[in-house]
Each structure stands twice: as C-alpha cells, then as structure tokens.
C-alpha cells in the first residue's frame, strides 16, 4: 500500500505538483490499481527471463555521416521564451 508520503515522493520524482486534497485521491486510486497489479505475485517467475522486447534484434547502427540541422529559428519556433538564440527558463533551484 502506498502512503500519502509515497504519493508526495513520486509526485516530486515525476515533477507533478500535487495538492493536499489530490494526494488522498491519488493514494486511493493508485492503491486500487496496485492491488490489482499484486495478482502477479501469485505467479512464480524466479526462473523466467524478462522480455524487454519481442524483436530479437542486435547491432542497429547508423554511419557517422553528417546530416542537415534545423535552422535556429525553427528550433525556437515552438516557444515564446527565448533570448539570443537560446531557450530561456527561470533559475534552476
């Protein structure tokens, strides 16, 4: 079971601000889902290899060949927060 503190912690890890009231709501909803996920515990899997990918592909590469970059104005076209060719954000900490 996850606690209010857990919700606050994962909210911080995920950078999603959660209000006091939302914390309780999330806790309840998340716990009901986690409880459902808990059914996997009944399945013994000690000797099972995890499947990260169904496609068993190895060694996919590209050659070291230069391709065209985007023009600076295109790079910055999707934000209004820019300055001297850079993205501008508030101070970090």
């Amino acid at each position: 079971m996850i606690t209010k503190e857990d919700v606050e912690h994962i909210g911080w890890l995920a950078r999603i601000e959660i209000s006091e009231q939302e914390t309780v709501e999330y806790m309840e909803k998340l716990n009901s889902v986690l409880e459902y996920f808990g059914q996997l515990d009944e399945l013994p899997t000690e000797d099972v290899v995890p499947t990260y990918h169904v496609a068993e592909i190895y060694n996919v590469f590209r050659e070291d060949i230069v391709e065209e970059c985007l023009p600076q104005e295109t790079v910055l076209a999707n934000t209004e927060y820019k300055q001297d060719g850079t993205f501008r954000v508030p101070k970090i900490g």
């Binding site: 230069v66 970059c69 600076q72 790079v75």
Partner: peptide
Amino acid sequence: KLKTKMFCGCSSDYHNAAPNTHTCPICL
C-alpha cells in the same frame, strides 16, 4: 573526433557555432 553526435546526424563541430544551430528533432 566523430563527425556526428551519438544518436543523430547533427555535426559535432559546434564549438564555435551560434546557439541551437547544431540541433535536430532527435537531439532536441
């Protein structure tokens, strides 16, 4: 010394370039 970046074809020769001129959708 590689000509391009790790995961995209952007030129690695950016050291004297104007900001955000050596980028593409992938490295952005």
